[in-house]
């Protein structure tokens, strides 16, 4: 390694900035455009963690990631307003997921209401449009519907349970490159 390169490195990491403990940054730095490479690095890393977990734990990987997501959902949602109505809860949920996931309530054309009752089950179809999990999986060439999707499942279930105080379950109906259809079952 040449001395020139070492000097260059020192130069890159040196500044005249005075930093005090009370200086709390109010913005994320650097600018979002410069974070693109960081985002790709995080997506790559997440993909590798999930792939390794699947290799080691097999089908148990789903349980681990679901549990992690559910805990996260409960943790985040406990600061949100408690709602008994499902519509209100979904509104709270969409605020909670903003920037990471976006979803809409959906129904097939032959159904009259969004809350569907069928075979003794009450459920709502959710179409997830923007999803960081899908982006990560596609970045890494991994299948959709695996352990990383389970984190989102857990997250939504945990948050809904925390907001409504009711038990919930989420099922994958279909995964696609632009949107995924999920069934939120209310108990």
């Amino acid at each position: 390694m040449s001395a020139g390169y070492i000097d260059e490195l020192h130069e890159a990491f040196h500044s005249d900035l005075v930093y005090r403990p009370e200086d709390i940054p109010l913005d994320c730095s650097p600018k979002p455009k410069d974070l693109e490479q960081t985002l790709h690095g995080v997506m790559k890393l997440n993909g590798l963690v999930i792939r390794s977990l699947e290799e080691i734990a097999g089908r148990g990987a789903n349980a681990v990631t679901y549990r992690a997501g559910k805990k996260f959902g409960h943790e985040v949602a406990k600061y949100f307003q408690k709602r008994e109505d499902v519509e209100g809860a979904l509104h709270e949920l969409s605020d909670l997921l903003r920037g990471q996931y976006s979803f809409e309530v959906w129904k097939p054309e032959d159904k009259e209401t969004f809350i569907i009752e069928e075979n003794g089950e009450t459920f709502i179809y959710l179409v997830f449009h923007d999803c960081i999990v899908r982006q990560t999986l596609r970045r890494n060439g991994l299948d959709q519907g695996g352990p990383l999707c389970q984190t989102l499942f857990g997250y939504v279930v945990g948050a809904i349970e925390e907001i409504t105080g009711r038990k919930a379950k989420l099922e994958i109906v279909h995964t696609g490159p632009n949107a995924c259809l999920k069934k939120l079952i209310l108990k």
């Binding site: 997506m43 923007d130 970045r139 279909h174 490159p177």
Partner: peptide, 25 residues
Amino acid sequence: CLSCHEICPAQALEHRGIYAARRHY
């Protein structure tokens, strides 16, 4: 979901009025 776009070997499909999800990947 656009699964049909991905699976169609002839790329014969076109959707109009669709929400295109963010593409970070």
